[in-house]
């Protein structure tokens, strides 16, 4: 991995080796806080969040708007850095990595799905996926990724020619095509109607099951929590409680 090749040159100080815990978390945070300063006002978006995401696990982060869930997802995906606290990807501390190394981390290990899809309007479905596979080490073929989300027949359509649900499934195909270890989804069904939302969630669940990708979905829609292995409730920038879901249900049974 390119990511690892960098590490020796930068020396051992960069990645702090930590003792192994019993479970094998892909990603974990330690007392993460995030304070935004706008002028003289301080906004405490996160107030000490400690959590982990295990291999093959699907977690739903549930919270009202302003609860800090987007901030947490951004920090998990190395789009943002915490004010205090530490974030680890496996045994590597992301909070000590350089901007370039964080880019490399996203490039190799993380897939993102956003509420507004964030597709490149100038590229077709296939090309949007190829955009990512071209810079990955061991990706699946773009066609394969699109088939997994049920879009094998819409390969050469531009985003403007696809429905919202289709666009979101292209975004998922793009996120999984690099075979990431982490899939982070920010309100993936937020802009969709319930029927379309279900097809998107089915795609996510299938990827999680088939590829074993650790998946975190943030949502304010409580119904979605039932498809996850675990639910983390966020309120006021803190984890209010956690819930283990022994028997996740298929998305088609979710009441919206």
């Amino acid at each position: 991995m390119v990511f690892c090749r960098k590490a020796p040159r930068l020396g051992a100080t960069l990645w702090i080796e930590t003792p192994m815990t019993q479970a094998k978390p892909v990603l974990r945070t330690e007392a993460v806080t995030r304070v935004y300063r706008t002028g003289s006002v301080e906004v405490h978006a996160l107030r000490g969040v400690t959590m982990g995401l295990d291999e093959g696990e699907m977690v739903v982060l549930l919270g009202a708007s302003g609860s800090g869930k987007s901030t947490l997802l951004n920090i998990l995906g190395a789009l943002d850095l915490p004010s205090t606290g530490r974030v680890f990807f496996r045994d590597r501390e992301l909070t000590r990595a350089s901007d370039r190394e964080l880019t490399q981390f996203r490039r190799e290990h993380v897939g993102f799905v956003f509420q507004f899809y964030n597709l490149m309007p100038a590229l077709t479905a296939r090309e949007n996926v190829a955009l990512v596979t071209e810079i990955s080490e061991n990706p699946m073929r773009p066609e394969e990724a699109l088939e997994r989300v049920g879009l094998g027949h819409r390969l050469d359509h531009f985003p403007a020619e696809l429905s919202g649900g289709e666009q979101q499934r292209v975004a998922i195909a793009r996120a999984i095509a690099k075979r990431p270890e982490l899939l982070l989804c920010d309100e993936p069904t937020g802009a969709l109607d319930s029927q379309t939302g279900i097809t998107v969630l089915e795609a996510l669940q299938q990827v999680n099951r088939d590829l074993g990708t650790a998946t975190a979905i943030i949502t304010h829609n409580a119904g979605i929590r039932k498809i996850a292995h675990r639910v983390i409730y966020l309120a006021d920038g803190q984890i209010a409680r956690e819930e283990i879901n022994e028997t996740p249900i298929p998305p088609s049974e979710v009441t919206w």
Binding site: N118, M120, P121, L131, I135
Partner: peptide
Amino acid sequence: AHELASLRVLGFRRSE
């Protein structure tokens, strides 16, 4: 700006 930021999220380097 939106597209370029998305590219950064996807792991594209600044030079790319």
